[in-house]
């Protein structure tokens, strides 16, 4: 029973990270109809920056803020310099460009910081809460992770729903031509979408780094399952990213715990396939979109 509880808790805190990165993927998908495979590598770079700041003796919170800021700038620059050039090309070209960016950034990190992973501090204690006579696999830092991810999701939801910027972002994504006619600066909306996504990604990187460490390819598995989560939840939906992330986190945790880790990705695949058979565009699919 305690094992079940621990597996559940670990699934939720891992799932929160998948959710955050999935959220970043959803933001970019909504903005530019591109799946950003470089997301994991971009957040790796910003986390290295944060780690370097901490190692230089700066406080954790400053490092966190700088990482997120660096993410925003990095995302905007990526869109302006690279993605803009392939936005009008077939979608497959953008996929290759982001793959190229992924490979390049990992190589760059290896050149600058070597392939040896380094430690990253946690914001709060990672000692689990004491329940009865034992500690559970959920610490104040896990609480922090889950709360931050939930807050970010809520904030983004509010941004899209209640602000004029959110409206413009949605308009630029769903009907760029119409939006342009209505005076929305579509290109700028794309840039903002990428910046927001990379900022969220940077936050996710800093949150997960204490438990995975910082290394050039350490965040690859996170990107993979975040992508699975985003597709599961529906690429259009921020809420879907959150639900998908937690579902994937739980499935991976339970299957690893009871059936062995080697079959965990297969279980994730099975869940994804079954879901998509029933709902081809994810759990929270915007069914309106097909009719338009």
């Amino acid at each position: 029973m305690t094992q079940f509880i621990d597996l559940t808790l670990s699934g939720i805190s891992n799932g929160a990270i998948y959710a955050a990165v999935a959220l970043a993927l959803v933001l970019i998908w909504r903005a530019t109809r591109i799946v950003n495979f470089a997301q994991g590598a971009m957040l790796m770079i910003t986390t290295y920056i944060a780690a370097a700041l901490v190692e230089a003796g700066n406080p954790y919170w400053l490092a966190l803020v700088v990482a997120v800021a660096a993410g925003l700038v990095f995302g905007a620059l990526t869109e302006l310099v690279l993605i803009r050039r392939v936005e009008s090309a077939p979608p497959i070209n953008a996929v290759i460009v982001t793959l190229g960016l992924l490979v390049f950034l990992e190589a760059l990190a290896g050149m600058i910081w070597s392939d040896t992973p380094r430690a990253f501090p946690a914001a709060f204690s990672i000692q689990g809460y004491e329940v009865g006579h034992t500690r559970i696999l959920f610490s104040p830092n896990s609480t922090f992770i889950v709360c931050v991810v939930a807050l970010v999701a809520l904030a983004l939801g509010a941004l899209f729903r209640y602000t004029s910027l959110g409206l413009k972002l949605r308009a630029a994504a769903f009907a760029p031509e119409v939006a342009r006619l209505l005076g929305v600066r579509v290109g700028r909306m794309f840039t903002i979408g990428w910046a927001l996504a990379a900022g969220v990604g940077a936050l996710a990187g800093a949150l997960v780094a204490p438990s995975t460490f910082v290394g050039p390819s350490n965040f690859d598995p996170i990107l993979i399952f975040a992508f699975t989560a985003a597709v599961l939840g529906g690429l259009e939906s921020p809420l879907g990213a959150i639900v998908g992330g937690v579902l994937i986190g739980l499935v991976l945790s339970y299957v690893s715990g009871y059936e062995g880790e080697a079959l965990a990705p297969l279980a994730a695949l099975a869940m994804l396939l079954l879901t998509l058979m029933l709902r081809p565009t994810g759990i929270f699919a915007a069914s309106r979109e097909r009719r338009v």
Binding site: L235, P265, L266, L276
Partner: peptide, 28 residues
């Protein structure tokens, strides 16, 4: 059979997960 119903990124997601999951069966 499943793929024929799926659009671009959704199929990409399924196949990506497949690429991760299938070779690992060898370890099991």
């Amino acid at each position: 059979a499943a793929a024929s119903r799926l659009q671009g990124p959704y199929l990409a997601g399924v196949t990506l997960t497949l690429a991760v999951a299938l070779p690992q069966i060898g370890n099991r």
